[in-house]
């Protein structure tokens, strides 16, 4: 198995409107197998566009205008994501790369029980499974994320925000993907629940060994949980380094600005001065 999981090379995304907006500009980065990569930056910096773009989840008028995205499967095969057709893309999705979305408030279908929404994934991607096997797989997933198998018949509006987010995580985990992209998964939750979710993600990672791309504007959070952090600004990656080095020895001015805008909990009054 290669050390690299995802090779993004000279990747650009433009929104084809009047005038065109270059949301991601010639980004090159290599995602290592098993790491947690944080994507940080202010609103509109392109971190979401980048993460969605490499999965080709963006809708028109977004267009990939340059570059390549290669997924190095655990089986040794290389998948050129930008060359897949629609049907291949559909099969690739969720199986190799899955996502946990922000604000599970509305991310679950309100009229279907969550068990059915989890089973959906198996029905489409693992058609050879029998109904009993699917049920058992769903129950197992719900147990793993500590929602409980008896909740399979519940509807989304019956669950609290934290539980819904855990259901989303279970859903993302269903096919044991190699990469999970998490788009601000804890932003809409209160801090206690946030911590619980993060603990869960960490534990699942240790158990299942998937790679994580974690998108958030909350840099201190990334400093705590990520292996490497990529700071983005106006569509470009301005700094990419380990969390430790970003904190102790930031190179780019923008990184320094970001780091200095967080207030401290301890010590003297005032902001963190680097």
């Amino acid at each position: 198995m290669r050390d690299a999981l995802l090779s993004v090379h000279d990747f650009s995304v433009t929104y084809d409107v009047d005038p065109p907006v270059e949301a991601v500009k010639h980004v090159t980065l290599e995602l290592r197998r098993g790491e947690i990569l944080g994507l940080a930056g202010e609103s509109g910096c392109g971190k979401t566009t980048l993460a969605y773009g490499v999965q080709r989840l963006l809708k028109a008028p977004a267009v990939i205008t340059s570059g390549s995205v290669v997924f190095h499967d655990a089986s040794g095969e290389d998948v050129e994501v930008d060359r897949l057709d629609a049907e291949q893309m559909r099969r690739f999705r969720w199986d190799k790369v899955s996502m946990v979305f922000q604000g599970a408030m509305n991310a679950l279908n309100p009229v279907a029980p969550i068990g059915a929404q989890l089973e959906d994934v198996f029905v489409v991607h693992r058609p050879q499974m029998s109904r009993a096997e699917r049920r058992e797989a769903v129950a197992e997933l719900l147990e793993i994320v500590k929602v409980g198998r008896q909740r399979a018949r519940s509807f989304p509006h019956e669950l609290s925000g934290g539980m819904r987010q855990r259901v989303m995580i279970a859903m993302a985990l269903a096919l044991r993907p190699q990469l999970m992209v998490m788009d601000e998964p804890t932003t809409a939750l209160d801090v206690l629940v946030q911590r619980e979710i993060l603990r869960q993600i960490s534990q699942l990672r240790h158990e299942f060994g998937f790679t994580v791309v974690f998108i958030t504007h909350d840099l201190p959070l990334l400093l705590e949980i990520s292996d490497r952090i990529a700071i983005m600004r106006e569509g470009e990656i301005v700094e990419l380094d380990t969390a430790e080095r970003i904190w102790t020895n930031p190179q780019d001015d923008y990184t320094k600005t970001l780091l200095s805008s967080f207030p401290r909990l301890t010590g003297e009054r005032g902001v963190v001065v680097r």
């Binding site: 989840l57 559909r90 979305f101 679950l108 279908n109 959906d120 489409v124």
Partner: peptide, 24 residues
């Protein structure tokens, strides 16, 4: 959002149209 999530899950178009969108 849930329609986008369904498509991200790799649901075929027909499923998204009827079970996620039209049903709501």
């Amino acid at each position: 959002d849930y329609v986008m999530v369904a498509q991200a899950k790799g649901m075929p178009n027909r499923r998204v149209l009827w079970r996620y969108a039209a049903r709501n």
